[in-house]
Amino acid sequence: MRPFRYHRPADVAEAVAVLADEPQAAYLAGGTNLVDLMKLGVQRPDLLVDVNRLPLDAVEELPGGGLRIGATVRNSDLAAHPAVRRDYPVLARALLAAASGQLRNLATTGGNLLQRTRCVYFQDTGKACNKREPGSGCAARHGQNRDLAVLDWSDLCVATHPSDLAVALAALDAVVEVHEPAGPRDVPLAALHRSPGEHPERETTLARGALITAVRLPHLPAARRSAYLKVRDRASFAFAVGSVAAVLDLDGDVVRDVRLAYGAVAHRPWRAYRAEEELRGRAFSPQLAARAADAELAEARPLRHNGFKVPLTRAITVRALTELAERTPAP
């Protein structure tokens, strides 16, 4: 591992200012991904700016509904928070389906959103990877690509975003509060991550040195009936091979509102707007859910080993929505 300097900033402004002056510095939060990538030689910061002791660890219930989640709130604390369990079960379920107890005790809200792909070619410095080293090529595109993208990939990169939390937040229309060198701003979760395109090394729309300080959830009563369905290769402690976050609001049997997002299919959490359009205003049935998923997945371009992700994502869409519909009491 490359030697690095260590700094504990006094406040957010100082943290952002230090990063702005240090091109090879990185923020350290929970470290569950960054420390590992430093051991692997994938990330080689020469300065770590430790944000763990900044006062960003509160969950506040907002007047008028909604929640403000500090960036260093640990995944385990967020999953256990009474308001999350009561009002946003999709969020609690996504958190609990991820990683292990020990990792959730370290991993933070902000860090989870900025974690790196688990594409094995990205994690192996002996392999070509345009994300790790722009211009070096992509060993995954024609390699073992079972776990990689089916939607929105480019010739330069077929990586997926690994977060479960981000998928739930995409469905909930969360807003990310960031501090950039130019000042604070709000970024909708759906606009936080980029498609790989010509620049897979640029993963977010944030300015260099930006620090996530909080995530806001809007007041969304419908989210009390929400679900996160994750399929993985073993029962626990594994990344998704497919996942869906779903919020369903029925008026009788008519879909009044619906939010859907997919994980493990693209370079970013995939909000399924097209599927939502198919569902909204129509009488719910499993067949309608299947048609909606088909509409969303029509543009899928599976790679050699991951064609199964398309029917899998379709199947979990139908299952998640049908289970929610059955749970929704008649008005």
Partner: peptide, 27 residues
């Protein structure tokens, strides 16, 4: 494993279980 996957390095940090291979002691 030294990569946070096996759990054999688990200790309690301020009373909470964590994987000690993923925590820099300087923090």
């Amino acid at each position: 494993c030294d990569h946070g996957q096996c759990g054999s390095c688990t200790v309690l940090l301020d009373g909470r279980r964590v994987k000690s291979c993923l925590v820099f002691a300087v923090t």
